[in-house]
């Protein structure tokens, strides 16, 4: 046995859409989510401070305390509802989340409701600001509460704080209470299809490079994808001719190909082999045979 080394795949969740097809979503990483949070937190604190300063100035100029009260309310709304407002109006994103390509979705695949958005953001107080408050000023929170209450309370808060690390879906307490997930939603990018190129056909009308079914039965899906990546690199001019001949001749030796093409025109050889190998594997797939790699 053996096989290729397992690649580190990003964590995904599957949601069955109403059309009964499982769709795969890549979960947002803890790092990306933390970065998005800090960006948003900076933005909301910054605008909150600006609002307060502006209102203080207005208060001094007008000689009244009213604007100061308005400043308090604005700051309160920003701090408590910044995330909820953006996630409601921007369909599950905030400026920070957009920056990092993250999006809040409903775990059951339905549309993200206002109630879910509110819930997941109401929990922020307990899972983030409260633990931070304990670090900053424990006596203010607990007062003269006896130690046998304080210790379990701190333990509990640590558990809640670390919750995203403790479950597969990386849900924080707010996600759990709202039934939401944060996913990474990359822009789809369709790469050039190497098999769509016109095949190599010599001018004399001979069939050109044609591999026999036996020659095409050697490799599997994994090698095919590796070859596709290699050809894309060749297109970008990143693979030297000498390296191409080494790879092409290795393949030729392995599959028992006799001819000078691997040495004379390795690029054409690799393209032709890729195309026919893929056609062969797809044909087998139609009959329900999937060949994952050459060891199978």
């Amino acid at each position: 046995m053996g096989g290729p080394a397992p690649q580190k795949e990003p964590r995904t969740v599957e949601i069955i859409c109403p059309e009964a097809i499982p769709l795969r979503f890549e979960l947002g990483s803890i790092t990306a989510r933390t970065m998005a949070f800090f960006f948003d937190f900076f933005l909301l604190t910054f605008s909150g401070v600006i609002a307060i300063v502006g209102m203080v100035l207005l208060g001094i100029l007008s000689g009244m305390l009213g604007p100061l009260g308005l400043g308090i309310v604005i700051f309160f709304i920003l701090r408590q509802f910044y995330f909820a407002l953006f996630e409601t109006l921007w369909h599950g994103t905030t400026p920070g989340k957009r920056l990092l390509g993250l999006r809040v979705i409903s775990k059951d695949g339905s549309s993200l409701g206002v109630d879910a958005v509110l819930t997941r953001n109401l929990m922020r107080d307990v899972e983030l600001f409260l633990p931070l408050g304990i670090i900053a000023a424990p006596e203010q929170l607990f007062g003269d509460v006896p130690g046998w209450i304080v210790l379990p309370a701190i333990g509990w808060m640590l558990v809640i704080f670390a919750l995203p690390l403790l479950n597969r879906e990386r849900m924080r307490a707010g996600d759990l209470a709202a039934g939401t997930l944060v996913v990474f939603l990359p822009k789809p990018r369709l790469l050039f299809d190497e098999a769509a190129r016109t095949s190599y056909a010599p001018a004399d009308g001979s069939p050109g490079l044609v591999f026999s079914p036996r020659q095409l039965s050697f490799y599997g899906e994994h090698e095919l994808e590796t070859l596709a990546d290699l050809i894309r690199k060749i297109d970008e001019g990143k693979v030297e001719f000498a390296d191409q001949t080494i790879i092409a001749s290795t393949i030729a030796k392995k599959i028992g190909f006799e001819g000078l093409e691997p040495w004379q025109m390795p690029t054409l050889f690799l393209r032709a082999f890729y195309k026919q190998q893929r056609a062969e594997l797809e044909k087998a797939l139609l009959f329900g045979k999937r060949k994952a790699n050459k060891w199978e």
Partner: peptide
């Protein structure tokens, strides 16, 4: 049926986004 990871990955990403656009936005 396709032995083309680039194609499948593209369709996975597009379908996920389209799903959210159709069902996920309120």
């Amino acid at each position: 049926t396709a032995m083309d990871r680039a194609l499948v990955a593209y369709l996975e990403a597009l379908a996920a986004r389209a799903y959210l656009a159709v069902y996920g936005t309120r």
